[in-house]
Nucleic acid binder design. Structure first.
Lengths: 233, 233
DNA sequence: TCCAATATAGAACGTCGTTCTAGACCGTGG
DNA sequence: CCACGGTCTAGAACGACGTTCTATATTGGA
């Protein structure tokens, strides 16, 4: 589960001319995950879509876990590519933009979230953490707080982003995510009024506003803390 | 995956005298998860330890996913029980204590973390969110920020807690988590110095300090933001 | 042209989650 | 005291899955 291949199994130095490739495999895997959800991704379906056998896939991938990790890695890569590094910009603004890029990508690929949360095993999640770290550093945060500030931001973005992505997700295919939000809110409103006083109170207001807006509003709460600890607002 | 049974499948109203029970099943499941990790929890092993067949387990549980959800729910319940509600205390102090209770429980049951992050499907995770929400409300946070403040705290606690729990976890049994931290730090120090400037810089300092201390230090960063947005420090 | 390395297909294996069926246990009403 | 229906349990059986193995095609360099 950990320490999985970051490079494909064999040395990847030279160019090859094969009809199959890691890129093709991952593209198909992502497509299946998008359409059928995580439980819908099987080697049968994958190899069928690829017109090949398991042997072909296992050449590029170590494991099913590895396959999913690499697929998640690609999702994060999309978000990183959407916000190129441009030195000199206001760090907090860049951070906000990066967070929204991740949010949008999680909206497109809701299956990825749970695998991202709290394990920077994947190269690009680590890259994301690194960019958050450099940004809070730029913002003037003291050295001993930088790592946990960056972690806090990463966990908020991925955690809350995943939650909202699921809530927003259209009903698709035979996947397991149904009318998640409706069901969730309905369940919330059936809860004991005393024991769940808070959740019941806010249940209604959660869906009234634009989700991206609320997402960044929550993020700003973190950033205020980070900004105060550093020099700026 | 969602909307799973919170009560066991049949009506649970009357007392029964059976040798098996949901409680016994979950206790065994948690024990196996602790010892062998998530992949080590199979129905064979579970029924063997229980001295029963699959039929017995399926009477109390809908699914394997349901089983794991219920096991996670119990873990969160432990944390909640460790910090009983006592009105009148300083809300931020209570919040910090609750966060540490979750941290300790995740340290004991590292498999639970990933299932908790970003899906309050389980009753007790929702209960945890509710308590965080009431605490930030007590701290004077404006109404429109309460939900996302509570979410930020929940995600930080579970996300970072899971990460650190894995890092701390002793090597046990045949589970898949090895010397996670050593491997992680070693990998971090092999990264490209330019691309991962931040991670490489902080890699060393991460393990120098006490983990619980750093965990709360990061949490305080959030709480500062929340406190400033509200009335207090 | 031949050889080793690279890359692929498909059959086969063992294990898993789950379902099905038969029956044991038990409180209750006749 | 005895059947009877609901509650609960054991084990056999099933189909699907991840994975491995073997055999073979394809290639670039000697």
């Amino acid at each position: 589960m950990f320490g999985m291949s970051i490079q494909p199994s064999p040395a990847r130095s030279e160019r090859r001319r094969n009809t199959l490739s890691l890129d093709v495999v991952l593209t198909e895997a992502v497509a299946i995950l998008d359409e059928h959800g995580e439980r819908g991704l099987t080697f049968r379906r994958l190899t069928e879509g690829l017109g090949t056998g398991p042997g072909g896939v296992y050449w590029y991938v170590q494991d099913k876990a590895d396959l999913i990790n690499l697929a998640c890695d690609r999702v994060v890569a999309n978000a990183l590519d959407a916000v190129p590094e441009q030195p000199g910009e206001e760090p907090m603004a860049v951070l906000r933009g990066l967070a929204l890029a991740v949010f949008d990508e999680l909206d497109r690929h809701p299956w990825a979230g749970p695998h991202l949360t709290s394990n920077p095993g994947q190269q690009n999640t680590l890259r994301l953490l690194d960019r958050f770290g450099r940004l809070v550093t730029e913002a003037g945060l003291p050295a001993d707080q930088q790592f946990y500030a960056a972690s806090a931001v990463l966990n908020y973005v991925v955690g809350v982003g995943t939650q909202m992505a699921r809530a927003l997700s259209r009903v698709v295919g035979d996947t397991d995510r149904e009318d998640y939000l409706a069901a969730a809110v309905a369940r919330w409103e059936e809860l004991d009024e005393q024991e769940f006083a808070f959740v019941r109170r806010v249940a209604g207001t959660v869906r009234e506003h634009d989700d991206r807006e609320q997402f960044t509003a929550g993020l700003d709460l973190l950033l205020v803390g980070i900004g105060r600890a550093g020099g700026r607002a």
